[in-house]
Write a protein that binds this DNA or RNA. Structure first.
Lengths: 238, 238
DNA sequence: TAACTTTTGACATATAATTAACAAAACTGT
DNA sequence: ACAGTTTTGTTAATTATATGTCAAAAGTTA
């Protein structure tokens, strides 16, 4: 029968692919394509929704209908990281959810800072969903003296002068950058010197960083232009 | 000699590819790949920067170095839409910039509304860069009575009850949705009924819409998870 | 103006991503 | 326990995307 043992059964049913710890993924050096990484968080979101609905298991084919993907793609994507499913049964949702959390590195907490306490910086600081995923905003910085000391949620806006000190005194590895592009270039250099490894960049610029630094860009105005393009396309297609 | 005539020369030097108006792109039915659409706004941004620097012309090879793409890819991407370059010369930056603006459908103004006046909605309403691209926020809505009537920049927060009325009385075709996912599903239905064609969706849900409706998703928490994934990958790769 | 250089646009090739197919494993119902 | 069903993980085929190549066009220089 199926039950609590499910997780164990899955992890032991495929010797070649057995994964004892997360580092094995990377040891194997099997390059994961950008397209797969792009989809991973979406799987996570769907699995979370399924859990909330109290559903216990799902087949790749059923999931493919909901996500508007092919079942084949789902199976291939997941098999990049291990054999999480079981023939004749499908995937245990809770188990797969937890596995993807490990893969995404969100099975533990991440402290982060926000540089720029404009509207966007404040919006991020207040985003309760992030906390739910384990991302904890430890500090928010701005250069504008008129807002320094004000509170955003539970944290106080700090002057830029305190940036180095606060990062170095902590174990913070992640920073969201919400300042204009010219300022961003210099601040990012500073962040990297202070030990920041991952940068969530909202500035309209492609940052040049060393190889070991990770940048995730959110170019909102580019997103808006894509919407505009598709609207034009759609209107002209009639 | 090169000069003001450049634009004319370019548009007349390739009969087969000559494009008299924007609808020809779509008439031709030549399917543009998602990958190209993804890159288009980035080209636009780089061209804008080049213009600001006072540079007049650029070759695909020089642009490829700056953008970290191959020259071949740039030429192929652009040739989806027309022959904007000239042998031995390259691309005229101002001309190409304007052409891409037409392609992206940002050569004219777009009125838009924002649904949800939380931190994110307000951040978008205050984003001066959008106005620069021709996107004009005409109204912002919220259901919270305590903030209705307050001003965000120059516009007043309206109650949700006014949504239908305001959209229908205008020519607004675009809406940014910045409300929780459950509310979003219903509101989007309403927006579509009111005549909205393009939806910039910030809610953590994949919206089901008719074929002629365009959705551009900005799933911030997915973006953050991708950052987290890559940081884990980077740390484990040493 | 003629020789030489640059650079595009088009096409051909190579690489990557997606989809299809199917044997083997595990489940289900009797 | 057995027959039939489901569904995975894997490999093969297909499709899509990116890169390399080159003739022809236009620029540049002497």
């Amino acid at each position: 029968m199926l039950g609590d043992e499910r997780g164990n059964m899955i992890s032991s049913n495929s010797d070649k692919k057995k994964i004892d710890n997360i580092e094995d993924y990377f040891m194997a050096k099997k390059e994961i394509s950008q397209a797969v990484i792009q989809r991973l968080p979406r799987y996570y979101r769907y699995l979370e929704d399924l859990m909330d609905q109290g559903i216990e298991r799902i087949s790749s084919s059923e999931l493919s209908k909901r996500m508007k993907l092919t079942a084949s793609q789902i199976r291939q994507d997941l098999n990049n990281f291990g054999g999480f499913g079981q023939q004749g049964y499908g995937y245990n949702i809770k188990n797969l959810h937890d596995e993807i959390a490990k893969i995404l590195n969100i099975d533990n907490e991440h402290e982060m800072i926000i540089v720029g306490a404009g509207h966007l910086g404040q919006a991020l600081a207040n985003y309760t969903n992030f906390r739910k995923r384990g991302f904890i905003v430890k500090a928010i910085f701005d250069k504008d003296p008129s807002i320094i000391g004000k509170k955003v949620g539970e944290i106080e806006i700090q002057p830029m002068e305190k940036l180095d000190e606060i990062i170095k005194a902590s174990n913070i590895k992640m920073a969201a950058v919400c300042i204009p592009k010219n300022a961003a270039v210099k601040v990012v250099e500073q962040l990297i010197n202070d030990g920041i490894v991952g940068i969530w960049n909202f500035a309209h610029v492609d940052l040049e960083v060393p190889e070991n630094i990770v940048i995730e860009n959110v170019h909102l105005s580019e997103s808006l232009m894509r919407l505009s393009y598709r609207m034009g396309e759609s209107l002209n297609a009639e």
